[in-house]
């Protein structure tokens, strides 16, 4: 729709700022809820930063893996392209991002932070989970503006005819299904459900909570596996990679079924937002001032 805004000295791609707006709003709300969820506010912020680094690396790497078969198949042409214009060659190999790579990268970044600084992982996982579809929704709106991740040819109600996009010229050839906006809408609905569940649990006493650690994440994963698998059939951008009749994302969705089930099962896990008893926690709750 509007891939970039020309500011005169630079063309500002809209995808990044839209994604950033969603991320900043999410980080602000996460920090506000952190204390109630038993997480230090500084940990809530720093772990997100580690997660965002992992997100970019993971999303770019998975995109590269979807392009790798093409590059290997026509390696001599790719080398010629690299010699003529390495910018375009690098853009071909790394110019996009894949959500699942970003999700896995984000999770690994957060886990790395927790292991390094000995912070409980589950508290952060449960705190962040509702905001994953929230930020992703903003990302899909960015996709709509950028013209990427577009839908199949479609001429029915709510079809969209994109203007000519020099980066994706085939986008404007036909009217298309607004799959980016549909996925964004579904993500925001998922966010509303998860944040409602989260707030209900936070307002209950620890012993009365019904969910266990990781189950919020399991609910989100199940939702996304189903939605993404179905929406992939409405995607028109074949360049993102296929193996047989399944797209890369559908295959990853299948692989994530087992982790989703394990998260939902929550065997041997504490109640959600469980705060482990530490010396500081005990002395504070008992009103003991160790400095006296």
């Amino acid at each position: 729709m509007l891939p970039y805004i020309d500011l005169g000295f630079v063309k500002l791609s809209l995808y990044g700022p839209i994604f950033l707006v969603g991320a900043v709003i999410a980080i602000i709300i996460v920090r506000l809820l952190a204390k109630k969820a038993g997480v230090e506010r500084s940990d809530a912020l720093f772990a997100v930063i580690y997660g965002m680094i992992g997100l970019v690396i993971g999303a770019k790497l998975l995109y590269f893996f979807t392009k790798l078969p093409s590059i290997i198949a026509k390696f001599d042409i790719y080398i010629d392209l690299f010699k003529m214009d390495y910018v375009k060659a690098l853009d071909f190999a790394f110019g996009g991002m894949v959500f699942y790579g970003g999700l896995i990268g984000f999770a690994l970044g957060v886990i790395r932070y927790c292991k390094h600084f000995k912070v409980p992982v589950w508290g952060l996982v449960d705190l962040y989970t509702p905001f994953l579809p929230f930020v992703h929704g903003f990302g899909r709106i960015g996709c709509f503006f950028a013209g990427c991740c577009y839908g199949i040819e479609y001429n029915g109600p709510l079809s969209v005819h994109f203007p000519y996009n020099e980066v994706v010229p085939q986008l404007s050839e036909v009217s298309r299904f607004p799959v980016q906006l549909v996925e964004a809408g579904l993500n925001f609905i998922c966010f509303a459900v998860l944040i409602t569940l989260m707030r209900k649990e936070l307002n209950r006493a620890e012993g009365d909570r019904k969910l266990k650690q990781g189950q919020l994440c399991g609910i989100y994963l199940v939702y996304y596996i189903v939605v993404r698998t179905l929406l992939e059939f409405l995607r028109g951008d074949a360049l993102r990679g296929k193996i047989g009749f399944l797209s890369t994302s559908q295959i990853i969705s299948v692989l994530l079924i087992i982790p989703a089930v394990l998260l939902l099962r929550a065997k041997n896990r504490e109640r959600v937002f469980f705060v482990p008893a530490t010396e500081n926690h005990i002395t504070k709750t008992q009103g003991i001032d160790k400095n006296k």
Binding site: P69, S70, I71, A73, D80, K88, F92, L239, G241
Partner: peptide, 18 residues
């Protein structure tokens, strides 16, 4: 002409499906 060659190389990579 070299820009045309560049675009042809890019198009041949983009057309690949597997």
């Amino acid at each position: 002409g070299s820009l045309d060659e560049l675009n042809k190389a890019l198009d041949s990579l983009k057309d690949l499906n597997f």
